[in-house]
Design a protein around this nucleic acid. Structure first.
Ligand SMILES: [Mn+2]
Ligand SMILES: [Mn+2]
Ligand SMILES: [Mn+2]
Ligand SMILES: [Mn+2]
Lengths: 221, 221
DNA sequence: AATAAAGTTTAGGTAAATCTAAATAAATAA
DNA sequence: TTATTTATTTAGATTTACCTAAACTTTATT
């Protein structure tokens, strides 16, 4: 597996993400959106990554990671998530601050560094957003049982992850007192706009929109 | 002070280093040597850095940092040295392994990150090679009194820094048991090749070449 | 001072990663 | 099933950071 440029790593990671989100084949437009770049640039890069055998790609047919590509992706994700853990656990950053920094740190490529970092952190299994961290061999623990809050059936729930890492969402959740491990009572679901009224112990109830609730991953308790 | 590219940061840092080493004006060739690039590339970059007012430069006259350039350099050096401390103090790397990694990590630009890192490390004043770490304002503690071993006159000396950070030298010093704080007795200086015979407590004496001794910085004890 | 050597710059290119605008293909709607 | 809209690709540029080879300055040596 040869060395990738920073741009190539970012593409690989985004392709992985979009495949995870369900896209059979990742479209040029979707990838351009994810990477905040232009479709024409994506086409250029697709040719290069195909050349390097990290993706399969045929004109107009979309993109998929090859096994090598997937391995590369998991490695980058491991680095990203371990740095996020470091920033939160050791440097007291809060969860909405770390994604951008990890976006840079993830590109420092050193097996030894990342394995030492993992050990230093106590080999964490999930990152500050509840996402699982692949191990040194690229194995990622099955995502624990989790449902988006807007689809969850039970009344008592625990927050296990957030699927959107934008500062905007995470700061909103901070303001509402929602973080990993928070226990929620569903008071009411409003059919009209799919908003949900929630209650956290010792706090007044509040209502969140569907846009928010579909990004909060929960498990029943 | 606008944002610099990684290449620009590396140039600025190397110019600073060569100025420190005594070059009145840093020559194109010297800089090319330091950066392992070609003189023609240095000329190109010199024009760009002059444009950005980080260096003063006139054709054929060599390069000097402006006050802004110096400030930028000290900031990069701060990041570099703090990361080296982190790698050695927290991740148990040894001093010959950290320079290259810090060469990458130093380019993650975030005031907050670096200040938190410094705090996490207990605001260290010197890095694993004995070099002083500039503070958040770019102030660097006066280098403690130190002389290259080849010029030192006392018989009993303590190692306070190494001026060459190559793996080759640092591994050699590891092999001889020389590290920061090591106390040395000068047994003999051989005029013929300027080699020096040394003794460390509880170890057999050994001889080092001038090439080595001029890179070991010491103070009398 | 004239010549040779060393150091530096310019000219002209390449490769990566972008972009805009135009062309083409695929999907959708009339 | 044509026509329209949307998605994608190509063509042609741009910027950054390099390079080699040739030209030009500066410096050292006869
Ligand atoms: Mn990234
Ligand atoms: Mn994360
Ligand atoms: Mn560097
Ligand atoms: Mn150092």
């Amino acid at each position: 597996m040869m060395n990738l440029t920073i741009a190539e790593e970012n593409y690989i990671k985004s392709i992985y993400k979009l495949e995870e989100e369900g896209q059979e084949a990742v479209s040029t437009n979707a990838l351009a959106g994810e990477l905040e770049t232009k479709p024409a640039s994506v086409t250029d890069m697709a040719k290069k990554l195909k050349e390097k055998k990290l993706i399969s790609y045929e004109k107009y047919q979309g993109i998929n990671l090859t096994p090598d590509g997937k391995k590369a992706a998991l490695n980058i994700i491991r680095r990203h998530r371990l740095w996020e853990c470091f920033l939160v656990d050791k440097l007291s950053f809060s969860w909405e601050e770390v994604h951008e920094l990890a976006e840079e740190l993830e590109h420092v490529r050193s097996e030894k560094l990342i394995n030492r970092l993992s050990e230093f952190l106590g080999n964490p299994q999930i990152d500050p957003h509840g996402d699982p961290i692949p191990d040194a061999q690229g194995k990622m623990g099955k995502p624990r049982p989790q449902t988006p809050l807007d689809k969850a059936r039970s009344k008592r729930l625990e927050v296990v992850a957030v699927s959107d890492k934008s500062t905007a969402l995470l700061e909103f959740l901070n303001a509402k007192g929602i973080r990993l491990g928070t226990q929620l009572d569903v008071i009411e679901r409003y059919e009209f706009d799919n908003s949900i009224e929630l209650k956290i112990r010792n706090q007044p109830a509040f209502t969140i929109s569907e846009q928010v609730s579909k990004n909060i991953m929960v498990k029943p308790i």
